[in-house]
C-alpha cells in the first residue's frame, strides 16, 4: 500500500433524494494513477457518488477531498462558487449523454475552457485542442458541429474537452451506456490509452469485461453502500458476498 496522499477521498458520504437514501455513508480512497471501476445495479447510487465527487450533487453529510483539498467545503455564496469552480477545473467529467455544446464546433468545445478559464491564448488553446483531437483520433473533425458526429465521436470529443483542462482525475459516468454497441469499442480504446498513461480514473460502468481489463480495483455498490471491493480478478472469479455473486451471475452470463 502506498503512503502518499490519496488523489480522491470520500468519507462518510450520505445523500437522500426525498425519502430515499441513495448514499448510506460511503468511504472511498483512490491513489494517484489508480483506476477504479464502480459497478452495481441501476439505482445503487454509483452515479450519485461520482456526481457528488464533482459536486454536481451536494452531499447531505460527509466529505469529498481532491488531492488534499476538500471539495465540499463549508463556504457560502461567492466564496464557495469561486472555490468549486477552481476545484472542478482539476477534475474531468464525462457524461452518459456527452453534453457537448451544440452551438460550438468541435474545436471550440475543447478550447473554450482553457481560453476562458485559464486565460490561454486562442492559438495555444487551438494547438492543444488539435493535439487532443489527434489523440482521440478525430483530427479531421475540428470544424464539425456536434450534430454531425456519431455517438462514439461525440464521446471522444467530450473526453478531449475534459482533458483540455489538464485534470488530475477523470470521472466517467456510464460513458458508453448511450452508445450503439458497435461504437463502444472506440471510446473504450481512448479510455484504455488514458489508463496506460496512468491517469487517475473513476469509471462508473455496466461493462464488466471492460472493467476487468482496465481497472486496478473494482467496487460493487448496491442499495447505497459499497458491498464489496477488490482487484478485478478476485472480484469476478471469486466474489465473497451473495449480492455480488447474484449480480455478477446476471451480468457475466448476459
Amino acid at each position: 500500500m502506498s503512503t502518499q496522499r490519496p488523489m480522491v477521498e470520500v468519507r462518510g458520504a450520505r445523500k437522500s433524494f426525498g425519502a430515499v437514501e441513495v448514499l448510506k455513508g460511503i468511504g472511498l480512497s483512490v491513489d494517484r494513477g489508480q483506476i477504479v471501476a464502480i459497478i452495481g445495479p441501476s439505482g445503487s447510487g454509483k452515479s450519485t457518488l461520482l456526481r457528488s465527487i464533482n459536486h454536481l450533487e451536494s452531499l447531505d453529510s460527509g466529505e469529498v477531498w481532491l488531492d488534499g483539498v476538500q471539495v465540499n467545503q463549508k463556504l457560502h455564496g461567492h466564496a464557495f462558487e469561486r472555490h468549486i469552480n477552481k476545484v472542478r477545473q482539476q477534475m474531468g467529467m464525462v457524461f452518459q449523454h456527452f453534453n457537448l455544446f451544440p452551438h460550438l464546433t468541435v474545436i471550440e468545445n475543447i478550447s473554450m475552457g482553457p481560453i476562458i478559464l485559464k486565460g490561454m491564448t486562442k492559438s495555444d488553446a487551438h494547438a492543444l485542442a488539435h493535439s487532443l483531437l489527434s489523440k482521440v483520433g478525430l483530427a479531421d473533425k475540428i470544424d464539425a458541429y456536434p450534430s454531425r458526429l456519431s455517438g462514439g465521436q461525440k464521446q471522444r470529443v467530450a473526453i478531449a474537452r475534459a482533458l483540455a483542462m489538464q485534470p488530475k482525475v477523470m470521472l466517467f459516468d456510464e460513458a458508453t451506456s448511450a452508445l450503439d454497441p458497435e461504437l463502444v469499442d472506440e471510446v473504450n480504446a481512448v479510455m484504455k490509452q488514458l489508463a496506460a498513461e496512468h491517469m487517475t480514473m473513476l469509471i462508473v460502468t455496466h461493462e464488466m469485461r471492460f472493467a476487468g481489463e482496465v481497472a486496478d480495483r473494482v467496487l460493487f455498490m448496491d442499495g447505497g453502500v459499497i458491498v464489496e471491493e477488490g482487484p478485478p480478478g478476485d472480484m469476478f472469479r471469486a466474489p465473497q458476498k451473495d449480492r455480488t455473486r447474484s449480480f455478477l451471475k446476471k451480468y457475466l452470463s448476459a
Partner: peptide, 29 residues
C-alpha cells in the same frame, strides 16, 4: 437541457459564465 449546464459546470465554468457562453447562446438559437 440541464446536461448543458452540468457539462459547463463540470469544466469549472461559473454560473454566469455558463449562462453567457453556453445557455443563452443556445436559447437564442
Amino acid at each position: 437541457d440541464v446536461g448543458q449546464t452540468e457539462g459547463a459546470r463540470s469544466i469549472g465554468f461559473g454560473k454566469w459564465q455558463t449562462l453567457r457562453h453556453v445557455v443563452i447562446p443556445q436559447a437564442i438559437r
